[in-house]
Design a binder for these strands. Structure first.
Lengths: 198, 198, 198, 198
DNA sequence: TATGAATGAGAGTTCATTCAT
DNA sequence: AATGAATGAACTCTCATTCAT
């Protein structure tokens, strides 16, 4: 019914940001279902009512929080990648892996959480599928400029992304016993290089 | 008297199995939080009380359901793999990918769900981390027998598993627009082959 | 999703009845919006959960409570009226008014509440409009048997019902200063008689 | 300074009026409980704070809105009736019914809502009972001047009012299936005539 | 031993009212 | 004086778990 307030004042914007970051933090730590709106409000230092004046419902907080986070991080990633797009491919890949690991290090459980929510919730699925597609497209354009052009590039890039994120998970949260991170990283890097140049 | 005990026990085991399979099915379809115990009981054709006489709580149903499922499927996987352990590596890998895709096809969202639950719940984490480790160890032993022996085998196998499961997800639930499954499969297979033989 | 439990045991039926009568009482006393489900549960001596195992939502309690009340009362009214359907019209009318006043005396605010809810809620409207129509039809059939047959009988009966219910309101809840009930009753009775025989 | 106060006051009066008319409109359309103060403020083009500087609480808006509406409408009704007070009774009654229907047509659910609120809220009850009494008294005085004088006039007038309002409800919101409005109107008019002259 | 009705804490959400700006 | 963002109690409804039968 009522259109949600568009924050025009600084305080408002800050509060909305605080709700988003609190939501993001708690969703990552405890998951969507174990985080309740009162907690989010408390953590953001606002009332429950305030939360609902900025967001339609809990799901909207979730979407906005992850959207904003991914926007931010992938924005920074592409900034870096664009600067190194003319490097020789091995250096470009090295850089890609390194920057990705740095930037997404803080994601913690965020991406795994998101993957799960995408499976459970149609609306969230639609929203983030589009976002992911954009992400792939940008990567393709970037690699094209670097001289990498193949019919099956989409599939190759997808494989690369899977591997890089496996690396990130290993680094941050999900470390497997008996798995040496540096060796793993070395393997991932060289596999990516082969995929893109082989 | 004594001869009646066995049928009762058998019935009991069957019921427990039915609860597990019902739970697994519903958890996969709707996720842990959107599946309630009454539904599980109804689907299994038992009373809610019965469910709680076999399992301490909902989480225990979840753990046991996934445990039993993974046990079953990975058992079958290794049966197949052991039969093809003497094949030339390219055929072995081909077989591995094919059988994995077949067996885990029915998992649907199950494994993604599980990954999420592992992040949210300490107890679930402990349980399935051990299971996964066992799984890797068996694969190592198998590949050793096939003649693949390297210092960094653990990491290589891990990468292979990541890629195969990405393939499975692509096949069952998570298809990305513009991604050709057959090309992707081809790439995964040859990447694995390179990782193991290169 | 889940179909609501159909009470098969006596205790269940009694509880459902208790919830209905508690709901009816509280809805009449304080109105729909000032009555909350916790109050209804408490008054019925059950938990909030129990209320929702018998009824889908608060509105369903409201509909069922009023439905059951009107069923009961109008059932009794028509029993009486059928017994006096062969009396001379003046006696029949006299009887109608008297019995109606007796039976609906306890309605208190019930009917006024209902009228309001009908205006606010589409579903409640549909439900009770049908019920009211049946009521009119029964009255028409009854008067037909008594020899009252006219083209505009529907309208006349409607007018009669309005007047009788005004009388009931005056008697029970809504007494106006300076209005003599007996005189008012006398007038209503003779007006009805004229409408039906004039 | 002093000459500015009057425009300010005028603006203030206009705003209060706007709040009242907005409140009335929304209360009629959605009912008291489904209308919120923010909506009223928005519709009136003022801030929520402003609403609370003119009225103590939501209930007071309700009372004032209906008070003002009824004042206005009944004022107009009596103006018309006074002009026709010397007509022969049949014409006077005809006029009464016609004018009432015209004037109160816009009430929609308003009066039914009000009746409900009177039952639920002691303060609203007190306020409008007095108003209604005044209304009856005026009608009595008017009919006295027309030559209608009887001991039981109060009761007769009350009956007339009930019938006329039933007619209005039928016309505006509450139409019953199978009920012909023109026939119903004819009956009401002639019944009123009989009540007042018979 | 098995049942499933019952529990009640806790979830998401709304909105009359206030008060810092 | 005027604003409208903020409050937080209160609402409806759910569901993991228990326990009388």
């Amino acid at each position: 019914m009522a259109d949600k307030r568009i924050p025009v004042q600084r305080r408002s914007i800050e509060r909305k940001q605080k709700i988003l970051s609190s939501g993001f933090k708690l969703f990552c730590e405890h998951g969507y279902y174990k985080t309740n709106t009162i907690e989010i409000a408390k953590h953001a230092g606002v009332s429950t009512g305030a939360v609902y004046s900025y967001f339609k419902d809990k799901r909207e907080i979730y979407i906005a929080a992850f959207d904003s986070y991914l926007e931010e991080i992938s924005g920074r990633l592409f900034e870096e990648l664009e600067q190194s797009q003319t490097l020789p491919l091995p250096d470009f890949v090295e850089n890609w892996v390194t920057v990705y690991l740095e930037l997404y290090a803080a994601s913690g459980h965020a991406l795994a959480q998101l993957r799960m929510m995408i499976l459970e919730d149609e609306e969230i699925n639609r929203h983030f599928s589009d976002l992911e597609n954009e992400y792939f497209m940008k990567l393709i354009r970037l690699l094209n400029k670097n001289g990498v052009e193949r019919a099956d590039l989409m599939e190759r890039i997808y494989t690369c992304c899977i591997l890089i994120d496996a690396l990130r998970q290993e680094q941050s949260s999900f470390s497997h016993i008996g798995l040496n991170f540096l060796i793993f990283k070395e393997q991932v890097t060289s596999t990516i290089l082969q995929l893109l140049s082989g």
